[in-house]
Design a protein around this nucleic acid. Structure first.
Lengths: 343, 343
DNA sequence: ACAAATAACGAAATCGATTTCTTAAATTAT
DNA sequence: ATAATTTAAGAAATCGATTTCGTTATTTGT
């Protein structure tokens, strides 16, 4: 069975391609009678227009690109769900690209996005990204671009983020109120704005309470491979002044902290209290249940997609970049209960 | 800054579009000197061909569709990673569609795939899918199709699956050896072949040992919403002959089993032992650590993608459907240790 | 009743590339 | 020195739709 195209359809109907095309798009130039005939015939022959021919002519692809650092993180899975929902409702297609946290890949992918393949781009930048020229290039070519979650600090484009600084501040305060005197923050990258903002909030809180022995040792960077990162946490836990509170800036670091604690038989929360920025579904059934700053992943996805589609479909109406801040929520669980509550 | 196209490039170079096109594709019809000039000029002006014009002409989109039931499940995230790696290496683009476990959506998406938008399709079918006409339609239109993980039983196409029956058998045997006398299997759908095969293996093992009081109560179906499913597990745990062993056929059911047990203060593994088909990263740090049948998600993704690309790029060479079975591996953890091992 | 307007359709241009078919000049062969 | 071949390039067709611009009939207006 071969697919039928417009020309063949027109021949079989003894009409011109233009008339058939117009009939299918319900043009007033075609009589109701003819339209009906054409529509029925098209359905019968299972006709559907070639999307690339249409894209070429209309200069619209009805496709957007979603560029993520990775897809294994629960946060991004949930965000994709949100994006997909909005895209599907509007009849858009989703191209997914993974940067694997590499600037070079991110750059190459963005090049691919500026040749008309997509009508817009949703992106969460890689942890390596500090230079923004590749992003600026896209903006210069007038392709709508919206950041979600991970957005550059100093780039003038729409974004949907969460209240990172405040949450960072909150986590430190909470740990300190629970009795921690030596809390640390595990960051995955000094370059990554979200980690940076969370860390800044954290530091501000610790410094405000005046309990910090060495302000330069409040934030630890676990970049590198998974193994390197595990090792770093291990060393931290074996060091002389072992922290009694840990804030994990991303899901992966929370898991690794638990793994190390389990291996080294360090009790959470008795010896170390833990709070993680994470959307882990299994947080309540971990050992012990993990306190989380839960980011609104799904809503961030839908909101970012909505911003993007506004800019794609009404570019003249929405010219100014918009920054939406969706608050994260704290879910207190046993990994950070105060000492007085131990049973 | 406007994007430049072939025609403009040709005008600026005082050449014809055909010559420029040939030059860029390194045709022998063009002199080395001209080629060099064209290439340099193209780079300088940041030229890259419009993909849809190329697709239209070449009748190749360099794009494949990946159709998944959902993306929140860790298994699918890992599979996407594998698929993406292979696709990227070959210069293919990835369109992602979610069926949300609905047959109607799956069908609509497949319609979209048969109009030339994609060169091939990778699919894991929805739990509702029993009819295969929508799949057959695609095959009839000569679009390569490869199943991964969730494949229909009786459909003649390539697929990459795992040894579900054997693993189902194994889980039952293991629970029984650990002292369970009333193990049950939680299936998410009677229609879903992977669940069915896993359940069949499970049943066969239980029946072989002759411990089953009622062979019809070995498999419980947790379809429906998350709430309904939770309720069903809850009822099961509150029932007169509460199971002392549970096999969760998918990740979600494992999480729900843990949630219910935690709420009802039922001790795992003392009162109920649990084994789950799952690729949960957090399995080792759950309370208690969860024994899993871990499917080779990433490898399934890469293998399925490779099969698909073979069929896309060498359709004459690969005509017969191929079925690849990648074994899952059992990771024993505390959720199913025998009674004698309790400390 | 005759000009103006409308209805219904077709021819041809267009989107941006690729590819086949020509053509003119340069080179080789005899 | 003339025919045959090769080289390097351009003209035009093509992919499959959409859209602009014409072109007939037919209807409406006065």
């Amino acid at each position: 069975m071969k697919r039928i195209n417009l020309k063949e359809l027109a021949n079989l109907l003894n009409l011109s391609t233009s008339s058939v095309s117009k009939a299918l798009r319900d043009s007033h130039e075609i009589s109701e009678e003819t339209k009906k005939k054409v529509r029925e015939f098209a359905v019968k022959h299972n006709y559907s227009p070639n999307p690339y021919a249409t894209s070429l002519r209309k200069k619209k692809s009805k496709t957007i690109a979603v560029i993520l650092p990775e897809v294994a993180d629960n946060y991004f899975s949930l965000a994709i769900n949100g994006i997909q929902k909005v895209a599907e409702a509007r009849g858009y297609h989703l191209l997914i690209y993974l940067s694997h946290e590499k600037y070079s890949i991110e750059k190459a992918v963005l090049e691919e996005c500026s040749n008309g393949r997509v009508d817009g781009v949703l992106i969460s930048i890689s942890s390596e990204t500090t230079d923004h020229s590749h992003l600026q290039k896209l903006v210069n070519e007038n392709i709508p671009l919206v950041f979600f979650d991970r957005a550059p600090e100093d780039f003038n484009a729409s974004k949907v983020i969460t209240n990172d600084y405040d949450c960072g501040y909150f986590t430190a305060m909470h740990l300190i109120e629970d009795g921690c005197t030596n809390p640390v923050f595990l960051s995955m990258s000094s370059a990554l704005p979200i980690c940076h903002r969370r860390a800044e909030g954290f530091k501000a809180a610790v410094l405000a309470t005046g309990i910090a022995s060495d302000p330069n040792k409040l934030v630890h960077y676990c970049d590198g491979t998974e193994e390197e990162s595990m090792k770093k946490i291990q060393e931290l836990f074996e060091s002389k002044n072992r922290p009694d509170g840990v804030v994990a800036s991303v899901e992966r670091l929370a898991i690794q902290t638990y793994m190390v604690a389990q291996e080294s038989e360090i009790n959470i929360p008795k010896e170390v209290k833990v709070i993680a920025f994470s959307t882990l579904e299994t947080a309540p059934i971990l050992n012990p249940p993990l306190s989380t700053i839960t980011q609104p992943a799904y809503d961030t996805g839908t909101k970012a997609a909505e911003l993007l589609f506004q800019r794609i479909e009404k570019p003249l109406q929405y010219t100014q970049p918009e920054c939406v801040v969706l608050p994260s929520i704290f879910m207190e669980r046993k990994s950070c209960i105060p000492k007085s509550h131990f049973s």
